[in-house]
Amino acid sequence: MQKPPAVAVPDRAIGEIVDYVCMSVPGAIRRLGPSQAQLEQMARAKLRERLDAITGRDRLSEALECAGAM
């Protein structure tokens, strides 16, 4: 079963990022020994951070507003 495009694209991007990192710094990956899940989590966080910077999204303000603090 295929994932909807909204999910498949980010998953593919994360896979590409992790593959790039593993090929770029294989020694560091071996020494540090992160799991695939940890690498994906770090890639997802960095991608989200960059996309938010590009789009001007402020997740903290959104969360505070949602919680009624603003």
Rank of each mutant, 00 (worst) to 15 (best):
M23W: 03
Y20E: 07
G33C: 09
I29K: 04
M42F: 11
E40K: 15
G68M: 08
C66Q: 15
E49A: 12
P26R: 07
E16L: 14
E40N: 13
C66H: 15
A69G: 04
M70T: 13
A43K: 02
V7K: 05
D52V: 04
L32G: 10
M23I: 01
K46R: 12
A69Q: 14
A53M: 12
I14P: 03
R50S: 06
L47R: 06
S35C: 09
S61E: 15
M70I: 14
D19W: 03
A69Y: 12
S35F: 09
P10E: 00
I14F: 04
A53C: 06
A63V: 13
M1Q: 10
L47S: 02
L39T: 02
E40Y: 03
D58N: 14
D19I: 02
A63R: 15
S61K: 10
E49N: 04
G33L: 00
G68A: 12
A63K: 12
L39G: 03
M42R: 08
S61D: 12
L47V: 11
M70E: 11
A53I: 00
P34Y: 03
R57C: 03
V7S: 04
A45S: 13
V9C: 03
A8H: 10
E65L: 13
L64M: 15
R57A: 09
K3H: 11
P4F: 03
L47P: 02
Q38C: 10
Q2W: 02
Q41H: 10
A37F: 06
Q2C: 07
A6K: 09
E16K: 09
R57G: 01
E40T: 04
R30V: 15
A13I: 11
E49F: 05
I17A: 13
I54G: 02
